[in-house]
Nucleic acid binder design. Structure first.
Length: 573
RNA sequence: UGGGGUGUAGCCAAGUGGCAAAGGCACCGGGUUUUGAUCCCGGCAUUCCUAGGUUCGAGUCCUAGCACCCCAGCCA
């Protein structure tokens, strides 16, 4: 991450959260905003987390505050060290820096325990012996109030003793819990004496077996925020009810500071699913090849696919922050990479589905070098040399035996320009038994070297090509959206997996690429002219066999008009 | 009459009572172009969930509805 302007002087209006932060700064309530990104290390980060990361770290960058990376690791049965590492990698890759501020909720276990004892002392928490099932029954329903637990009125001393025994391992898992003593008849279910500690014998990735009781989210999160002096605690909409409990804990404990929890809508994208549970299912049931499958909208999948950190940040800025639940068009994400790669990716030529072209009037023993620009709009990208010879490959789709008039490419008797090469005219073509075109015979005009003619003759089409003798072979993976309906989550009758797009991955072997591609840095992106942006897969490529992932296609107004939905077997809904 | 939220264009999203309802994506025209790309121009809500009301003036305030989302884990 080099020198990117941290504060884009972008005149985009502030979202409601930034307005609050700005206001607090202006009034002096919080001169230095402190936010935090609090992932649970139980899975990989995805594009939805990126939204939260960009929000939290973005605010700290824009308002000269700080942003903490805090792992919310209070449930050892689901969490692993490996996830911690992948999350750190992903946040860094996205371009953010937590500096010294790396924290773990598990580092607060001692303090949290003491806060729990304080709550007991205040008569605001009690040990409850009800079974999980009984607790549920006593809780009441959405419309009926709950009823008090028979253990609700134990004395503080008794509770303290019991809680200490819980901590000491005197009781089996699940046999007792510590509950906040609030109000079993509260209309808000979250306030009906929520459990704040449970007995759970599971080795924690950081604290090992030193604890057999673990604090629950609602007790941990607010206190962790408070201990870190977080000013604005940003989370998603489903935690709106939890805010009552968040505030209750801090108020009851009379803590020195009281972070403000503000909720915003989580990200939903068309043609995909976002929940960790569902992503995990896709991985476990082998619908994809792992968490970093380029079709996955995990950060690692996007990285492998070829998305740039900048494009993801721009995307997050574009969609905004609000409280309305939304379903963002996948096209916006795709557009964000196009926009970025258009600026940064060098242009090259690669033929995905090769069709041999023989230039009959070009000497068989000759070859020559032509000069091509690496980025037509940016001379600073420099130029490179292309080898031209008698036999070439062009894209199969750039020839039609009986083309319509609006088809600007090759057909019998038609002339096109080979990009940076010559004008060629198709004189004849060969087919095999099945009628499949196997080769084209063309003649070239020696006067058009470089791609322009002295006579000013109009040639509408320009196609890409590669010299047969000099091309290198490569593999290219074409990806399409993983689901074939806009909202796979929205189907109440069918499982989301019934909407998986069977053609989301297409592997092309025997692609013919220009020789310069042999030296590309793994993980970097180029534009295959007229086709799209591609990324050299860093894990699948080997020295002799490059593997490219298609990041995204170029906009294609021709295909749109000629074959609107031809590529994918998308059922329109 | 359980609680908590949300409703501005196909999708996001500004707007915080006052000249003609930002912007992006998508879409539709046109221009440039050795990528049917990029780029550039132009079009795209007489109307803000609905109905009443307050006001000289309302997307913004009030009232009543309607729709959708979240909450009954010893998950986060």
């Amino acid at each position: 991450m080099t020198s990117e302007p941290q504060n884009t002087p972008d005149q985009r209006p502030l979202d409601f959260i930034r307005q609050i932060v700005k206001q607090d700064q202006r009034t002096g309530k919080h001169l230095v905003p402190i936010t935090r990104f609090p992932p649970e290390p139980n899975g990989f980060l995805h594009i939805g987390h990126a939204k939260s990361i960009c929000l939290n770290f973005g605010i700290s960058n824009e308002f000269n505050g700080t942003c903490h990376l805090r792992f919310d690791d209070t449930n050892p049965s689901k969490e692993e060290e490996a996830y911690v590492e992948s999350i750190k990698t992903d946040v860094k890759w996205l371009g953010f820096d937590w500096g010294e501020h790396l924290y773990f909720a598990s580092d607060y276990f001692d303090k949290l325990y003491n806060f729990a004892e304080q709550l007991i002392d205040k008569g605001k928490a009690y040990v409850c012996d009800l079974t999980p099932d009984q607790i549920r029954q006593y809780r009441g329903t959405l419309t009926e109030p709950g009823t008090d637990s028979p253990y609700r009125n134990r004395t503080a001393a008794e509770n303290l003793e019991l809680f200490r025994k819980m901590k000491a391992g005197a009781f089996p898992d699940g046999s007792r819990v510590l509950r906040a003593k609030i109000d079993m008849s509260s209309p808000a279910i979250i306030m009906r004496d929520p459990v704040i500690y449970r007995i759970l014998r599971s080795t924690h990735h950081r604290t090992g077996d030193t604890w057999c009781i673990y604090p629950m989210y609602d007790f941990t999160h607010c206190l962790s925020d408070m201990l870190e002096k977080i000013t604005h605690s940003l989370c998603t909409l489903e935690f709106q009810d939890n805010r009552m409990l968040y505030d209750w804990v801090l108020d009851t404990l009379e803590t020195p500071c009281h972070p403000r929890q503000i909720e915003f809508a989580r990200l939903n994208l068309t043609y995909t699913v976002m929940s960790k549970r569902k992503l995990l299912q896709l991985v476990n049931e082998k619908y994809v090849d792992g968490w970093d499958d380029p079709r996955m909208l995990t950060i690692s999948g996007l990285r492998r696919r070829g998305y740039t950190p900048r494009s993801i940040r721009n995307f997050c800025a574009q969609i905004g922050i609000g409280k309305k639940e939304s379903l963002i068009d996948m096209g916006i994400l795709e557009n964000a990479v196009r926009e970025d790669l258009n600026e940064t990716a060098a242009r090259v030529m690669g033929v995905l589905d090769p069709l041999k072209v023989i230039i009959d009037n070009y000497p068989a023993d000759r070859s020559e070098t032509l000069t091509a620009q690496n980025h037509p709009q940016k001379p600073e990208f420099g130029t490179r040399e292309l080898l031209f010879s008698r036999e070439l490959y062009i894209e199969r789709s750039d020839f039609m035996e009986d083309p319509p008039r609006k088809f600007f490419r090759l057909g019998p008797g038609r002339e096109v320009r080979l990009r940076y090469g010559y004008y060629i005219t198709c004189t004849s073509y060969e087919t095999d038994d099945t009628g499949r075109v196997t080769a084209l015979h063309c003649s070239y005009d020696p006067e058009t070297r470089g791609g322009s003619s002295a006579d000013g003759r109009k040639v509408k089409g320009t196609i890409h090509w590669v010299s047969a003798a000099h091309a290198i072979d490569g593999e290219v993976c074409l990806y399409d959206r993983l689901f074939d309906v806009e909202h796979p989550d929205g189907d109440r009758e069918n499982d989301f997996k019934t909407h998986i797009n069977p053609d989301s991955k297409q592997v092309l072997t025997g692609c013919k690429l220009e020789p310069s591609l042999a030296h590309l840095e793994p993980g970097s992106q180029v534009q295959f002219e007229r086709q799209g942006y591609f990324c050299l897969d860093a894990t699948l490529s080997t020295p002799g066999r490059p593997v490219f992932n298609r990041v995204v296609t170029l906009r294609d107004s021709w295909e749109k008009q000629a074959a609107p939905v031809q590529t994918k077997s998308l059922k329109q809904k």
